[in-house]
Design a protein around this nucleic acid. Structure first.
Lengths: 122, 122
DNA sequence: CGGTATAGTATCCAATAGGAAACTACTTTC
DNA sequence: GAAAGTAGTTTCCTATTGGATACTATACCG
């Protein structure tokens, strides 16, 4: 009979839990994966491009999320010396390390939807 | 010069975007990955076990998140015919399909933390 | 019969997330 | 000179999230 014995008290689990919290704090929110996925697909895009690509997002959220992602070195922002001024957003090398995770998330979501649909038919 | 041409307008991207939204709606929140991770590790645990394992969670959130996960068929809840009454929570077969995703998220988080630490030393 | 364990609910509150709309500021095009 | 495109910021508002605390209800243990 376990009272305060803990699975998660093992050092390896503590590290994993911490890591999940870390990752979630960078990637949580309604739009981060959409932005990252779009930038991985599109290479470099301007602010207005992203606004058009990501269905439903508004300027405030896009601006805020891009700042977050830039701060965490997942996205880079470059002001171009053009007239009218343009800004190029692109995924960083580090941001690219997320692409398999995003793929897996997307594929899991696709399978999940299929499974729900199949269940619905039974 | 692209005006409303869209990367994400392609059917394959639409499906991916939808899938990411689907997955996020099931998995978002502060505790879901922790609960799932703990149940994958621990196989079957009672409510109080989970409360002890998951550092910082309270009864309200644990209860609510378990209900969500159960509704989405990721966790199963079995009331045992014991005195005092006990409840066994475990990961479902379907829930187990998330384990590689959770692993990848945790590993990414570990690497991210390392990279921040290294940057800090430069 | 009081303490402790099981498994939660209910209530109240604070913080955060997110959306709509208006606005800034600059430039090019018609 | 007005419209439209660049890239945002600001303000106001609502909804969701999450936490603390107290409470219910049952049952065993001593």
């Amino acid at each position: 009979m376990r009272k305060n014995a803990e699975i998660n008290a093992t050092p390896v689990c503590q590290v994993r839990m911490q890591a999940i919290s870390d990752a979630m704090s960078l990637l949580s929110g309604k739009w981060k994966f959409h932005i990252l996925g779009t930038l991985i697909e599109g290479n470099t895009l301007g602010f207005m491009d992203l606004l058009r690509e990501i269905d439903g997002i508004g300027t405030k959220m896009l601006s805020k999320e891009l700042q977050d992602l830039e701060m965490n070195n997942l996205v880079s922002r470059t002001v171009m010396n053009t007239k009218p001024i343009t800004v190029e957003y692109s995924i960083t090398e580090y941001g690219k390390t997320l692409s398999s995770l995003i793929d897996e998330l997307a594929n899991w979501g696709i399978e999940y939807r299929k499974s729900v649909y199949e269940k619905g038919n039974n």
